[in-house]
Design a protein around this nucleic acid. Structure first.
Lengths: 220, 220
DNA sequence: ATATAATGTGAACACTTGTATTATAAACCG
DNA sequence: CGGTTTATAATACAAGTGTTCACATTATAT
């Protein structure tokens, strides 16, 4: 009898693409979906065949990597948030110093989003899209983000005047404002809002929110 | 030669639905799309045939009312915003009086949204959906809303400390917060957030924003 | 009552879709 | 090397799609 390892190491096939670069097919499938969404398709409207066509493989080969489009989408969600979580980790490790903290934070955030535009484009679009499982996955990731941010805020604010619910309320407001900025940054930027203007906008909104927070008094 | 009237009065056919209520087919098509979106489909993923099936007419009959799904969607956008615009008109005519202005405003807004849930469900979903024309239509409606709100705010705030851009920034923050509330109200309300909690949340967020606004000083 | 315009039907078209089966080719391991 | 696993291809099928066309029905107005 042979020893059967519990952990199966997934060996990934290489596949040759149009541009002659070899790439993991699995990764290529992710990229294809992101690319198709970037061409103005909602995730739900992307067919399995379209994806494989984009990658350049046979439709049936798709099933070697994912049972269906839905699970691909779910993996794409956790993949996208993994990178964001890492950014926040780094920021927490090296807190922004000096004056203009808000400005600098918004700047690093925006440049980060612009470094991974497809992932955030996907998240923002799928957040309210037609596939319930993906929607809820994104939603719980965002809720996690709000929770983390509210514990961070708890250390900065007076816990006498701030209940945990109110901290979440504040964090939600901040995350919401930043989400808006990302939306304007990545979708239909036809109003010629340049990046600097958007950073300006985000900075001012955050500043106003934090100004309100500094004056906050809990009213039953 | 006959007199050709410039204004063509559209005579609408009655159509019998499952529930035996007669209804304009055109209206029935709108309703069918809203209903299908309510069953967790993004607009882009709804087929013309599905819609006609829902209404109970032949697919080809669709073309008697709309040239394609896209224009139906665009009409649905202006239809949805027409009702919202009316609410705001009424509010402006009869401003909320007395104490707790913010609370009352949020309450009337929420009850209003709950009175037309399908329309706002559609708007919120299609805002970031896959069809570019619809997306931009919704976006410009929202921008109009922000502009209107910022002129309203201009009358309440000191114009020395508030530039028009900053007024829009503030209005955008408020509209954004309310949009969030509607999203949580109409989509996947699986966290059992009841309506009162959501009104509470919205009220606090608006209060915090306005608190910040009252302290605002423009920083170049 | 009858002509006219507005709405609806039914069948057909050329495509696209997801998935299953069977076969081929490539990578891996002993 | 040879054998086994894994990835991909080829082909097929039933079901669904948008759109068109010729025709039938219904409503309205003269």
């Amino acid at each position: 009898m042979y020893y059967k390892p519990e952990i199966i190491i997934r060996i990934q096939k290489k596949h040759r693409r149009k541009d002659n670069k070899t790439i993991d097919t699995r990764q290529a499938l992710f990229d294809a979906v992101l690319e198709l969404m970037n061409r103005d398709k909602s995730f739900e409207a992307i067919s399995l065949r379209e994806v494989t066509r984009e990658v350049g493989i046979n439709p049936s080969a798709f099933y070697r990597h994912f049972p269906d489009m839905n699970t691909l989408g779910l993996e794409l969600v956790s993949l996208s948030f993994k990178t964001l979580r890492q950014l926040l980790k780094e920021v927490r490790a090296n807190p922004v110093q000096g004056s203009n903290v808000i400005r600098k934070s918004v700047e690093t955030f925006v440049t980060y989003v612009l470094a991974h535009p497809r992932h955030y484009h996907f998240v923002i679009r799928a957040r309210l899209g037609g596939v319930a499982t993906i929607r809820t996955a994104i939603d719980s990731e965002l809720r996690l983000l709000v929770s983390e941010l509210s514990t961070d805020l708890a250390q900065q604010l007076n816990t006498d005047t701030w209940s945990t619910d109110e901290l979440k309320m504040l964090a939600g407001l901040m995350v919401g404002a930043m989400t808006r900025i990302v939306e304007q940054l990545l979708i239909d930027n036809r109003y010629h809002q340049n990046i600097v203007e958007l950073i300006d906008l985000g900075e001012k909104q955050l500043r106003l929110i934090l100004l309100g927070a500094s004056q906050w008094r809990s009213q039953t």
